[in-house]
């Protein structure tokens, strides 16, 4: 096998990739390619098979069947070689709590065969990059969730990886911490680092991903850029209507039977609201009022990947 892949070859290449745990199939024959320099995402709810896919790419989980190459290499045979060029941000923080912030980076560089001096040079630079310089000698434990996440990202960069795997990088973080993290990831992308991430936040996928696949129940159900997916599967705008709950009814909108028919090409009745998919939200509002409907609240908004997911699977991303 050649050690150098041509620049146009995908960094990650998967065909019919499967992962089974006993009788349970976590990943059921997925196909995808990740090109150098792109930000690629796996969007899907918990349990869709995203983490299992990432672990296979990270060479820490054996492939059950199908083809997977990373940097053109087979993870089963060249695991260590692949990991040399890989940065991994796992879902759980896995920091070394017995070491200080700086020491976490120093020793991690050693695991990548860096000299102490080189490891220290990069560690200091990376602490600057993730804005943790003033916490360098602190213990890891008392850091906030956002700081720990940033430290994990710094740690994943110590070997200057050309491919960064991020498994739900911002889950559990407050909005401010998320935006800081997104900013750092965006800068990495500008430096030419290929990003491969999983998320169940549609806004994160829209912010970060050039291209993504939507995963549901171990399968890929759609693929494209965020814009393409929205154009293909949903309308430009969504009208959200909420109705006061009628006596003795389980759903707020259950009493509407048929009054919304024909208002738009597609209408989704959720327990707490009605989604009307339409090219012109304001026009749909007018029509609704003409028909005598009196919703408690009206919201016209741009369609999101959340709507794409709902359309494809009939369920919300975060349940």
């Amino acid at each position: 096998m050649p050690e150098t892949a041509p620049a146009t070859a995908p960094l990650i290449h998967a065909r019919g990739l499967r992962k089974c745990f006993g009788a349970f199939t976590a990943v059921d024959g997925v196909d995808f390619d990740v090109a150098p320099g792109e930000a690629f995402g796996f969007l899907g709810p918990n349990g869709a098979g995203k983490t299992s896919t990432m672990r296979m790419i990270g060479t820490v989980s054996p492939v059950t069947s199908g083809t997977l190459t990373v940097f053109g290499l087979d993870p089963a045979r060249h695991g260590a070689k692949i990991r040399t060029r890989l940065g991994v941000v796992p879902q759980a923080d896995t920091l070394d709590n017995e070491l200080s912030v700086l020491e976490n980076l120093l020793i991690y560089g050693r695991y990548f065969d860096l000299s102490w001096a080189e490891s220290r040079r990069r560690a200091i630079e990376l602490l600057e990059f993730v804005q943790l310089t003033d916490r360098a000698n602190d213990k890891v434990e008392p850091l906030s969730g956002g700081m720990k996440r940033r430290l994990v990202i710094a740690r994943s960069l110590i070997n200057e990886p050309s491919l960064l795997l991020l498994d739900e990088p911002t889950t559990g973080l407050d909005p401010q911490a998320r935006h800081l993290l997104w900013d750092r990831l965006y800068r990495l992308k500008q430096r030419g680092v290929t990003l491969c991430l999983t998320t169940h936040y549609m806004d994160e996928a829209e912010q970060l991903c050039d291209r993504l696949v939507v995963m549901d129940r171990a399968k890929i159900v759609a693929e494209g850029s965020p814009r393409q997916l929205i154009e293909k599967y949903v309308t430009k705008e969504v009208l959200e209507l909420r109705f006061p709950r009628a006596e003795g009814e389980a759903d707020d909108s259950a009493h509407l039977d048929g009054q919304l028919d024909g208002l738009a090409e597609r209408i989704e009745q959720l327990p707490d609201r009605v989604l009307v998919y339409t090219a012109d939200g304001e026009a749909a509002v007018a029509t609704a009022f003409e028909r005598g409907l009196r919703p408690a609240s009206v919201l016209v908004r741009r369609s999101t990947l959340e709507d794409v997911f709902l359309r494809l699977t009939g369920r919300s991303l975060i349940e």
Binding site: A92, T94, D96, Y111
Partner: peptide, 14 residues
């Protein structure tokens, strides 16, 4: 508990 090996196996260490 500390799960330090989970992080270590993501490096070239076997």
């Amino acid at each position: 508990h500390a799960k330090i090996y989970d992080a270590i196996i993501a490096t070239p260490m076997s």
